[in-house]
Amino acid sequence: MSDFLMTPLISLKNVGLCYRPLRTIFSRTKKEIWALRGLNLQIYEGEKLGVIGRNGCGKSTLMRILAGIYGIDEGKVRFSRPNVHVELLSLGVGFEGNLTGAENAVLNGMLMGKSRAHMLERLDRIKTFSGLGEFFDYPVYTYSSGMNLRLGFSVAMETDPDVLLIDEVLGVGDEAFMAKSETAIREKFTSDRTVVMISHDAAVIKRMCQRAVWLENGCIVAEGDPGKVAEQYHHALAGGQ
């Protein structure tokens, strides 16, 4: 492992997170659901970390902890320096149907931690990258779901966080845009940005990441070389079936 990888940018120690769903006086649903428990993980500056695991193993919860959306119930999350900008790549969330693509691009970028001026400067690039043409100035409710994703993706590519969290998204849209968006994501992977990517598809993790962790029932069961972790994961899946 090279030197720049040696400082953990984010370290999670014995982290636990628990959901407490609302109950009614007549129902007896479970009081506590521990999505993660006893989780130890270091994320190093500049690394590309893959997280694999089945549905419901706590992957998305882990992402939300890293993004600062959820507070944890146990353990510690430490950042090596203050003001690390962590952003979850989410496409088209929070768009207002009655507003135009351009207006939504600015608003969405602001939610992702960028200033209005930053987004206004990049509006032309977003328009070009999205390939929406004149639709960029039409209300978003006129968009197809593919166009929605295109706009969301183009906006996300213009907000450069220190740590990018990717949840199952690689390429979006039709064939042409798929190639373009995958290239853009790959660029993020080749830059010195820290990227954490989750997927239930071990092949993707193997292809894109330098290190992988396998998450099962809210804690890490294997960690290390993506190839080896993927193999163990597959083995367990096959055994489970």
Binding site: G71, R78, F79, R81, P82, L111, R116
Partner: peptide, 22 residues
Amino acid sequence: MRSHIPNKTMFISTLKRYCGII
């Protein structure tokens, strides 16, 4: 929780950002 305590300028710029969003 997060161990870092944001300094004063950071606090103000964050607050400005939230006011901008609102």
